[in-house]
Simulated scan of single mutants.
Amino acid sequence: MAAEGALAEVLAYLDPVGYAVAPAERGEVVAVVRCDPDAAGAEPARLAALWPLVLAARPVVPLHAGLSVPAAAAAALPAALAQARYARDAARVLGPGAGCVTAGDELSSLATLLAGVPAGVRETFAERTLGPLGDQDSSAHAILLRTLEVFLAHNCSWARTAEALHLHVNTVHYRIQRIQALTGRDLTKLDDKLDLYAALLCR
């Protein structure tokens, strides 16, 4: 199996204290690596640095890897595996064409956190949250969607949004009112802002 050989090859080169590599479900490969506690923090960077060489050796196979934070005891291994799988799923979104490595402690923003959510879940959340704004066949809704993106990117500033879109402030007010009516969200509320921002990231 290409993935198993690639992972074993990289780990052998990194020369950790000890490791075991084994195939798992759905074609994935799992490795448990025993590291020097003083050097554990450097392992993700070392693996990420080597990964392009692995991809170059197998250019037709997109290989993605996810790393958990170090597990302090054997009882923590199931949680570590779940975290590594989540990071791996995020890597598939962040580097879909060739492959990349994502460590669990790199999931430090909403965008990277959402990247690990299954594609079908992201799509459903975006559709339900954005409602009619997600209709790609409607030019009017596309304009409103773009206005929402710019409005949130400018921290909900009416003036800066108007400047960025070359509009009068009153036009921005009207569009935001339409967005709120179509989505049922109130952009003066933090929770609703976050829901809409997350929905845009999930598209």
Rank of each mutant, 00 (worst) to 15 (best):
M1K: 05
E4Q: 13
G5W: 03
E9P: 01
E9S: 15
V10C: 09
A12Y: 04
Y13A: 08
Y13E: 15
L14N: 05
D15R: 08
Y19W: 12
P23I: 13
A24I: 10
A24W: 08
A24Y: 11
E25K: 03
E25M: 03
V29Q: 02
V30R: 02
V32E: 07
P37Q: 03
P37R: 02
A39E: 13
A39Q: 15
G41K: 10
G41E: 04
G41L: 06
P44M: 05
P44V: 06
A45D: 10
L47R: 01
A49E: 07
L50I: 02
L50N: 01
A57I: 05
R58Y: 08
V61P: 01
P62A: 06
P62D: 08
G66E: 00
P70L: 01
A73I: 10
A76I: 01
P78K: 15
A80S: 07
L81N: 10
A82Y: 01
Q83C: 08
A84V: 02
R85C: 09
D89N: 11
R92S: 01
G95C: 14
P96H: 06
A98T: 15
C100I: 08
C100E: 07
A103K: 03
E106R: 13
L107Y: 12
S108Q: 02
S109T: 15
A111I: 06
A111D: 14
L114V: 12
P118E: 06
A119Y: 14
V121H: 07
E123T: 09
A126I: 14
R128I: 15
L130N: 08
G131W: 15
P132A: 15
D135L: 11
S139F: 01
A140Y: 04
H141K: 12
I143P: 03
I143G: 13
L144M: 12
L145P: 05
L148S: 06
V150C: 09
L152S: 08
N155L: 13
S157T: 00
H166K: 03
L167D: 00
L167M: 07
T171C: 07
H173F: 08
H173E: 08
R175E: 10
I176H: 04
R185C: 12
R185T: 04
R185N: 07
D186P: 10
L187N: 04
T188L: 12
L190V: 15
D191N: 12
D192Y: 03
D192L: 13
K193R: 09
L194C: 11
Y197S: 14
A198L: 10
A199E: 09
C202G: 11
C202W: 13
R203L: 15
R203S: 08
R203K: 14
